Amino acid sequence: MTAAEMVVERRAYARVGLLGNPSDVYGGRALSFTIANFSATVRLCPSPELLIQPHPHHDLVAFPSLPTLVSRLQSEGYYGGVRLLMAICKVFYNHCIQNNITLKAENFTLSYDTNIPRQVTAGLSGSSAIVCAALSCLLHFYNVGHLIKVEIRPNLILDAEKELGIVAGLQDRVAQVYGGLVYMVHSTVRQRWLNGEEFMISSMKEVAQLALDGHKALLQKNYSELARLMNRNFDLRRQMFGDDVLGSVNIKMVEVARSVGASSKFTGSGGAVVVLCPDGDAQVELLHKACQEAGFVIQKIKAFPSVLTEEELASLVTSQSMS
């Protein structure tokens, strides 16, 4: 085998939460899909020593001036992708040790690239995309994909992010591991819901129910009902968390879409919204005009990319039918 043939490269796509978020953090349900517009790519090359390679743009440590450094931190935060790659390496190794999975004694160099906008990384799940792609590389390099089942992988990705103090639910990781359009029901991963207020409990249950109803609406191709559910999802989130938490710009994106009769909600925690135009092309044109006037950028969603092999899909279907 040549050196080029030993190089592993895997991609994970940005995730859009269609219905049910943020109930995935509270033991609820979610309906999500990946989009081909944005993605993260991780590359693994065999090497004499193990090296995590910084990205030339996202992991900058040199700046022309102090004001430039501060401006960069204010707009994009402190961390790039190196910490994410290191975290998934640790979680992957520990999982293999704990489950008696033998790994070959070979080293590698990990590098990454991403075009998922940093400003909306929480909305499109940019960090978990890097972790997901890296895990796929590790599974292939060590040839242990058959030993670490597909349904376990989202938890490994989530565990890697927990290592870094990232608070999240399973929605992003399930959608990115499976690819395409995914309906998921969540069990409680970690006790985060410490407030017993009745309004919060009942509202979160309703948000979870929206994902179940949306699943039915999609199967029936009832897009007007899907639009209503999307709007209700955002309205409930706004009532629960308040405008100060959601942010005025995020709220304005939703309101601009609704001003032309479209439905809209956050794709994740904010920074980006998903819009459904049930009335067709004329409504889409109105939306483009309204967004241009408001200074927002529209991305038409490309096909839902599938990331699992036929063998992995078959094993997943088999394990679910037996459970």
Rank of each mutant, 00 (worst) to 15 (best):
Y93I: 13
Y93V: 14
H95D: 02
H95C: 03
N100K: 15
L103I: 09
L103W: 01
L103R: 06
K104Q: 14
N107L: 00
F108M: 00
T109S: 12
T109A: 08
L110N: 07
T114L: 09
N115D: 15
N115Y: 06
I116N: 13
I116C: 11
I116T: 12
P117F: 14
A122E: 01
G123Q: 05
G123N: 04
G123K: 09
L124H: 07
S125I: 02
G126Q: 03
S128H: 01
A129I: 05
A129L: 08
I130R: 05
L135S: 07
C137W: 01
L138C: 10
L138M: 09
L138H: 07
Y142M: 07
G145Q: 11
L147H: 13
K149I: 02
V150N: 08
E151W: 05
R153Y: 02
P154K: 12
N155D: 09
E161I: 04
K162F: 11
K162T: 07
E163W: 05
L164H: 01
G165V: 01
G165W: 06
I166T: 07
V167M: 10
V167T: 04
G169K: 06
L170A: 13
D172R: 08
R173C: 04
V174Q: 07
Q176S: 15
Y178Q: 12
G179H: 11
G179F: 09
G180I: 08
G180R: 06
L181T: 11
M184H: 14
V185E: 15
H186E: 02
S187H: 13
S187E: 14
V189Y: 09
R190I: 11
Q191H: 12
R192N: 11
W193R: 08
G196A: 10
E197H: 08
F199T: 05
M200H: 12
M200I: 04
M200W: 08
I201T: 04
I201C: 02
S202R: 10
S202A: 12
S203T: 14
M204A: 04
A208C: 10
A208D: 01
H215W: 12
